[in-house]
């Protein structure tokens, strides 16, 4: 079943098309890779889906609903949550608090009960706390739960970024370069974690990533875009054999080897 669909979406920056009449379908429960040379429009695509940018034309349909032009928090409420290319966390908060913030959409705590600190409110807080713990455990971050996020090593920060996104109970995760700056061991662990997220919770995952080996290992389907246009689509082995794709990469100055 098609869960997310982009229909002829274009986004211009001062006359230059970052993406141009882009069509994209994402199936429920798949892990799909979005690749392309630098400046191909991958992050712009994410920004358009999550409502951080409003497309100049075209529609974004999520689960049959037109979500074009919704604001980011509304898109998140519908179930699309993203991570960022540069590590984005709440730096001064501990890892645990970061995840607690991520749990926002499931929190349902009213203003009056929070002020009065009633028993039912305390039960809710405890419940949230347990959920946060579970998520930290899932990412093997329990040891650093009380560590401020800004003090964590880069690899753990990336993991925490995904943990925050997962806490928001998404139906679909958009991961922007989740493996950048990780060592090979961390990359393997993250690939396994992303697969587990999909397998256990049925969450669709869209990945933008430059590490080709990892993309080939992780994704079931890959869409290649260049200059904001889709140039190829298919299973990893088809993409590797695709002449156009090879040309796009060779023709551009990219570190994707």
């Amino acid at each position: 079943m098609t869960q997310l669909e982009l229909q002829k979406v274009s986004k211009f920056f001062g006359g230059l098309a970052a993406i141009s009449r882009l069509d994209l379908q994402v199936q429920q429960g798949e892990i799909i890779g979005l690749i392309g040379p630098n400046g191909a429009g991958k992050t712009t695509t994410f920004n358009v889906i999550t409502g951080e940018l409003r497309p100049n034309e075209g529609e974004v349909i999520f689960e049959g609903q037109d979500i074009t032009g919704l604001r980011p928090h509304q898109v998140a409420t519908l179930g699309i949550v993203r991570t960022y290319q540069l590590v984005t966390l709440f730096p001064g908060y501990t890892a645990l608090k970061n995840v607690l913030v991520g749990l926002h959409l499931g929190a349902r705590i009213g203003f009056a009960e929070a002020i009065l600190n009633s028993r039912s409110h305390q039960r809710k807080e405890l419940h949230l706390y347990r959920q946060a713990q579970e998520i930290l455990n899932f990412f093997n971050l329990q040891a650093v739960a009380d560590e401020p996020a800004e003090n964590l090593p880069h690899g753990l920060q990336r993991k925490l970024g995904v943990a925050i996104a997962l806490a928001a109970r998404p139906k679909m995760l958009l991961l922007d370069e989740p493996l950048t700056g990780m060592n090979p061991n961390e990359v393997l662990e993250m690939i396994a974690t992303i697969r587990r997220i999909r397998d256990r919770n049925g969450i669709t995952v869209v990945v933008v990533e430059h590490n080709m080996r990892a993309v080939m290992a992780l994704c079931e389907r890959i869409v290649v875009i260049n200059f904001g246009v889709r140039i190829a689509e298919g299973a990893p082995q088809d993409i590797q054999a695709n002449k156009q794709v090879v040309e796009a990469y060779l023709g551009s100055d990219s570190h994707a080897a």
Partner: peptide
């Protein structure tokens, strides 16, 4: 917690639905 999160990183706060 949420007010602090908005101060720490409003973009991310929005992305998780705040």
């Amino acid at each position: 917690l949420i007010f602090g999160a908005i101060r720490e990183g409003d973009r991310l706060a929005r992305a998780v639905g705040i």
